[in-house]
């Protein structure tokens, strides 16, 4: 039996996390659910959310795993500072992230200006901006998770691979990456969920247009302005989808890894 000093706060903590979700379920106008689910706005937002979260996760993997490798396996001056900076988006309010992205990738931004000038590309108010916003807030989760896994993995296995004739890249691909696969999977799941729930940076950087940049969280927020019932239904949909996806992923990856 767990000591009461642990058990009581634990139960309170559990209740604190679950009761709001329960409230959502209880207050949901279940009758409206099918109609809402069938409505093109909701379907559009849902599809956009899933697509953008997945794309943001993919982008995070593409950029974040090498970054994590750099942080875990190489030495360069200022590495501690870089590591601290990488995790800044974790603590930054997402709206601030959105503003920062706008300042850089906006039409008059540091980078965006040139993109616009040279290639005629304008990122804000596009689906690409949603993906970027999601990546910005989600990638640190992935980097932290993968870096931890890389640090835990035995570097000497890399050396063993080198003595067998494997180049750095082959070593990374055939030894390091398979060894940290559980960490990468966990990080990807974290990043995906973070990107799926992303609101602040998205609405600030990508704007809000149905079918293009209006993801589920934005739809929930704006529905709250006019039709709270609809907002509850949308929240519920988001909740169900995330739970379903997480459960599936757990089965497939995390379960396999923790075996």
């Amino acid at each position: 039996m767990a000591p009461a000093l642990l058990l009581v706060p634990a139960l309170f903590g559990l209740a604190f996390l679950l009761v709001p979700l329960l409230g959502l379920v209880l207050r949901a106008p279940w009758g409206e659910l099918p109609a809402q689910l069938g409505s093109p706005e909701v379907l559009g937002a849902l599809r956009l959310s899933l697509v953008c979260a997945t794309a943001a996760t993919a982008l995070s993997l593409l950029l974040g795993v090498p970054l994590a490798w750099l942080l875990a396996r190489s030495t360069f001056p200022g590495k501690r500072l870089v590591r601290a900076l990488v995790t800044v988006p974790l603590v930054l309010p997402p709206v601030v992230g959105g503003v920062a992205l706008l300042v850089v990738f906006g039409r008059r931004g540091l980078v965006g200006e040139h993109l616009h000038e040279w290639f005629g590309v304008s990122l804000p108010f596009t689906t690409g901006a949603v993906v970027l916003a999601g990546t910005f807030v989600a990638m640190p989760f992935l980097v932290v998770s993968v870096e931890g896994a890389l640090r835990a993995a035995d570097v000497r296995l890399d050396e063993a691979a080198a003595t067998l004739g494997a180049s750095r890249w082959v070593t990374f691909r055939r030894v390091t990456l398979p060894l940290v696969a559980p960490g990468v999977a966990a990080g990807a799941v974290l990043a995906w969920t973070r990107a799926l729930g992303e609101f602040g940076a998205t609405i600030t950087f990508a704007g809000n247009f149905p079918g293009r940049t209006q993801t589920m969280p934005l739809a929930v927020y704006l529905a709250m302005e006019s039709n709270p019932e609809a907002a509850i239904v949308l929240s519920l949909v988001l909740l169900l989808v995330s739970v379903a996806v997480l459960a599936l992923l757990r089965e497939r990856w995390m379960g396999g890894a923790s075996r």
Binding site: D154, R156, L157, E159, A160, A162, T163, L164, G165, A166, S167
Partner: peptide
């Protein structure tokens, strides 16, 4: 190391 014709048996085998 990858370009040397060496074979290494490590202490805990690795």
């Amino acid at each position: 190391p990858e370009r040397r014709p060496v074979g290494v048996v490590f202490q805990d085998y690795l």
